[in-house]
Design a protein around this nucleic acid. Structure first.
Length: 413
DNA sequence: TCTGGGGTCCTAGGACCC
DNA sequence: TCTGGGGTCCTAGGACCC
């Protein structure tokens, strides 16, 4: 048996922990640039606000209905996520952190999984303030389905045993099955597969032709056969950093500043994980939603001379690539980079001819790491990142760094 | 005015090899 | 007239996830 623990409306719940006035009222959290609704309280869902709804389309509704609106506060959500995970670990040492708000727990050998789950729910809520829902079943895909049902029937905890699956799966629409998205959902509907139950009963070979091995796995998982094991978090293979601009950008100079800042973000993340990049890819794009303006998007990748985590080397490579694909006369919406084919720093092969230079650079990079650790991410930056930064994203409605910033910690009394 | 960001995996097709 | 078969590796693109 395994369990999927999923935090309810996670970002909204995080906001509520530190701001009780948000209880029982509609609340949404927006994506970067205050673009789309990415988390909604139940009250907001009842108002008909869809996941991913562009904010400019629902602004009026929010105003009229008194919806409380927040920009994403990732420092807060990341910290709360770690707290929830640490509680889960006490209950089930074998745990896979699947996303910022979900974990799979291995419950093998537990006699009464549902009573453990109830206990777990109460403890997480008491210790972190975050409400969670739990689905229990013999495969990950079924646990996902059980979780969905637990949310729907309001119990917050649901075990799906083999003899209950048939009925339960019949109530789940095909595109709500984990692993079936928009495209596959449409194709399956065309051949009269409308529910999770229909998929479970379909012919595996036929399903494989439509959706490859993954969809066949989903089918078998729905029949209770576990095909997706518990996985340990693998080191990332790629790191991507990119942002949409707060306003359209016309100048190469602004693009360079922005990209340089994203390089900083990506390299810091990579260094934090102790990895080196073999290659780098840079991309840029205009706003594809604007139909009547000239469109241009392009990307370019390059192998680095040797695997590296050196900020200056990666920054200069990125800016060089950007200049190669940049074209004058477009209103750009976005640029970014990927660090490709990451490997562990410990596997690095030294190069006889560049070793001295590498050592000096490493000292510089290390010093940068330390300054940022001590004084914050923005305390030091490259001149190429610029100072005015007119391209920066909007984040007007952010809540405080309740748990992550000394000067924003809540005061009592 | 205004439409996110960061990932993974699989597959098809081309280049190349013997 | 007539042009194989089997393999690897790489990349781009598509699908999915939260």
């Amino acid at each position: 048996m395994l369990a999927l623990v999923d935090c309810n409306n996670f970002y909204v719940s995080c906001e509520r922990v530190f701001n009780p006035s948000l209880e029982h009222v509609p609340v949404i959290v927006l994506s970067n640039n205050d673009g789309c609704a990415v988390a909604r309280s139940n009250e907001a869902k009842e108002l008909g606000i869809r996941m991913g709804a562009p904010f400019f389309q629902i602004r009026e509704l929010c105003h009229r209905q008194g919806v409380r609106v927040f920009s994403s506060n990732y420092e807060l959500y990341g910290d709360m996520s770690r707290r929830v995970t640490s509680v889960l670990r006490r209950f089930a040492p074998q745990l896979e952190v699947y996303s910022i708000d979900e974990s799979f727990l291995d419950l093998e050998g537990i006699d009464e999984p549902t009573s453990l789950a109830q206990d777990l729910r109460e403890t997480v809520y008491k210790w972190t303030g975050i409400p969670v829902s739990i689905g229990i079943a013999s495969s990950k895909t079924l646990a996902k389905a059980a979780n969905r049902l637990a949310k729907k029937d309001g119990t917050g905890c649901r075990q799906l045993l083999a003899d209950q699956c048939d009925n339960a799966l019949a109530s789940i629409k095909i595109e709500d099955v984990w692993g079936v998205g928009r495209q596959l959902g449409r194709r399956l509907r065309q051949i009269r597969i409308l529910t999770a139950r229909d998929l479970a009963k379909a012919s595996p070979s036929k399903i494989r032709r439509i959706g490859g091995v993954n969809l066949e796995r989903t089918l078998r998982e729905l029949n209770g056969l576990s095909c997706l094991g518990m996985e340990q978090r693998q080191p990332r293979q790629n790191i991507c950093s990119s942002r949409s601009f707060g306003r359209p950008v016309m100048e190469l100079h602004d693009m360079e500043e922005a990209l340089s800042s994203y390089v900083m973000t990506a390299v810091q993340r990579m260094r934090g994980e102790g990895s080196l990049a073999h290659g780098i890819q840079v991309f840029l794009a205009t706003n594809s939603f604007k139909e009547n303006t000239p469109q241009y998007h392009n990307s370019i990748s390059e192998s680095l001379p040797e695997p590296t985590d050196d900020l200056l080397a990666i920054t200069s490579a990125a800016l060089r690539l950007l200049r190669r694909i940049y074209r004058n006369g477009y209103a750009y919406k976005k640029t970014g980079l990927l660090l490709l084919d990451l490997m562990s720093h410990s596997l690095r092969q030294t190069n006889l001819f560049t070793e001295d230079k590498t050592r000096n650079r490493e000292a510089l990079n290390h010093a940068l790491d330390q300054v940022m650790d001590t004084h914050g991410r923005d305390s030091v930056f490259l001149a190429s990142q610029g100072i005015r930064r007119g391209w920066q994203m909007r984040r007007d409605k952010r809540s405080q760094g309740w748990t992550t910033m000394w000067d924003e910690i809540p005061a009592a009394g």
